[in-house]
Design a protein around this nucleic acid. Sequence first.
DNA 1: CTCTATAATGTTATATTATTACATAGTGTT
DNA 2: AACACTATGTAATAATATAACATTATAGAG
Lengths: 130, 130
Amino acid sequence: MQRQQNLTKNQKIVLDIIEKSTEPLKAYSILSNVKKKGINAPPQVYRALDKLVDMGKIHKIESKNAFVACQNSNCKVSKAAAFSICESCEEVTEIDNSKISKYLSSFADKIGMKYKKYNLEFFGLCKKCK
Amino acid sequence: MQRQQNLTKNQKIVLDIIEKSTEPLKAYSILSNVKKKGINAPPQVYRALDKLVDMGKIHKIESKNAFVACQNSNCKVSKAAAFSICESCEEVTEIDNSKISKYLSSFADKIGMKYKKYNLEFFGLCKKCK
DNA sequence: CTCTATAATGTTATATTATTACATAGTGTT
DNA sequence: AACACTATGTAATAATATAACATTATAGAG
């Protein structure tokens, strides 16, 4: 069984490029960027992405089919994440989610759900664009 | 300019099938169900879906690439929506979001964002499955 | 009414995103 | 060495979504 801390070769390559990016990266964009490192085909990228998401190292922005590195160390535990997405400049920012997490998990309890994680995407205009 | 209340022929057909479904429908599943009604190609479905989402009549479950009819009349205004998604039985339920809306919009204010809408997806186990 | 602008529709092709299926290679355990 | 298991490599294809362009319907303006 793979340990959380020891990433495999492909996982390291994929995580590295996501961490270095200033914006969410799409799977095929990652693929084209890692061809020189010997990753040739989609499944290699998607497998690494899946595992990294499972570990909480990255998050998927569902509305964009794109991936960002986790900014909050606590996501390692909850895997829950919240983002603000600017509809003008496309900037995506991960929101420090400890308060939201508390609120939302209590909400999930209230509706009778055994809560595991959530994905929250805010759309609007960021500070700069509004 | 199209008025909110007057749906076009294709929009009616697509909305109708989504409203009759007990589960989120995918675009190509909708397509195959409406071929008999004269809708033949993906763009016809996607165009109707886009407009219906804009009007708040339906919502897209981003994590599933699927569409559900809006359960809350107030979504017509806010277009914001929250769902609980059971990872066991796949049931998707729209959460009455007036409280969450209030909380999240104030949160968006606090981080300096001009808030327009949000999409929130809870994952876990529903009442029946837990 | 009819002209015109716009919205809606229809159609073909193609782009983008993601998975299946199977073969090969490494890694640790007994 | 034999094994189970994880990871990797590869080809093919499935599933999701859009571009581009032609045609038809509809609502106002004159």
